[in-house]
Simulated scan of single mutants.
Amino acid sequence: MAQLDYRLNPIVDAGALPGADLPALAREAALGGATLIQYRDKQASTRLMVERATAIRVALAGTGVPFVVNDRLDVALASGADGVHLGRDDMRPEEARRLCRPAAIIGLTVKNEADARAAAAAPIDYACVGGVFATLSKDNPDPPVGLEGLSRLVAIIRESRPDLPVGAIAGIELAQVPQVIAAGADGVAAISAIFETGDPRTAAQAFRATVDEALKGRGS
Rank of each mutant, 00 (worst) to 15 (best):
D115Y: 10
A114D: 10
E159G: 03
P66F: 11
A24N: 05
P93E: 01
F67P: 02
T54D: 02
P93D: 04
A116S: 04
A29R: 10
R218C: 10
E28P: 00
P162Y: 14
A78I: 14
I105V: 08
A55E: 07
V84D: 00
T210M: 08
P144E: 09
L60C: 11
P66V: 03
D142M: 04
D186N: 13
F207Q: 06
S137H: 04
L174P: 07
K42G: 00
R208L: 15
T109Y: 01
T210N: 06
A120L: 12
G217L: 12
P200N: 11
R97A: 00
V69A: 00
V129H: 03
L48K: 15
A175S: 15
E94H: 10
R27E: 02
T63S: 07
L8F: 10
D41W: 11
G64S: 14
L73T: 00
D89M: 06
A53E: 05
M1G: 10
R117S: 03
N9T: 09
V68A: 01
V211M: 09
A122W: 08
L147W: 07
I106C: 04
T135S: 00
G167W: 07
R52F: 02
L136Y: 03
R98H: 13
G15T: 12
P23F: 13
V65D: 01
D13R: 08
A20I: 12
T109F: 08
I56G: 02
P143V: 13
V75K: 01
F207I: 05
V75F: 00
A20R: 15
D163A: 11
P123H: 06
D142R: 11
A116D: 00
V65C: 07
R27C: 03
E159L: 08
N9F: 07
R52C: 10
P144W: 14
Q3L: 10
G19V: 12
A204I: 03
K216E: 14
L108I: 07
N112C: 08
V177K: 11
V84E: 02
P141K: 14
V211I: 13
P123L: 12
P102C: 07
C128K: 09
P102M: 02
D90N: 02
T210G: 08
P23Q: 10
R201C: 14
G131R: 14
D21R: 10
V58D: 09
S151L: 05
A78P: 11
E196C: 09
Y126N: 03
T35E: 02
L136I: 08
R47K: 11
V50L: 03
I56R: 12
R218F: 00
L17I: 08
A116K: 10
G217W: 09
A206R: 15
L108N: 00
M91P: 09
A30Q: 15
P10L: 07
L174T: 04
A59H: 01
A134D: 13
E113W: 08
A2Q: 09
G83T: 15
A55S: 12
V211T: 05
A61I: 12
P10S: 06
A204H: 01
E213T: 14
A114N: 09
M91F: 04
A134R: 15
A182Y: 05
G80I: 12
R161H: 11
R98G: 02
E94K: 13
P200C: 04
G130M: 08
R27P: 02
I156T: 07
G19I: 13
Q43N: 06
D21G: 04
A29V: 05
D125L: 13
R40K: 09
L4M: 15
L48G: 02
N140Y: 06
G83S: 15
A182S: 13
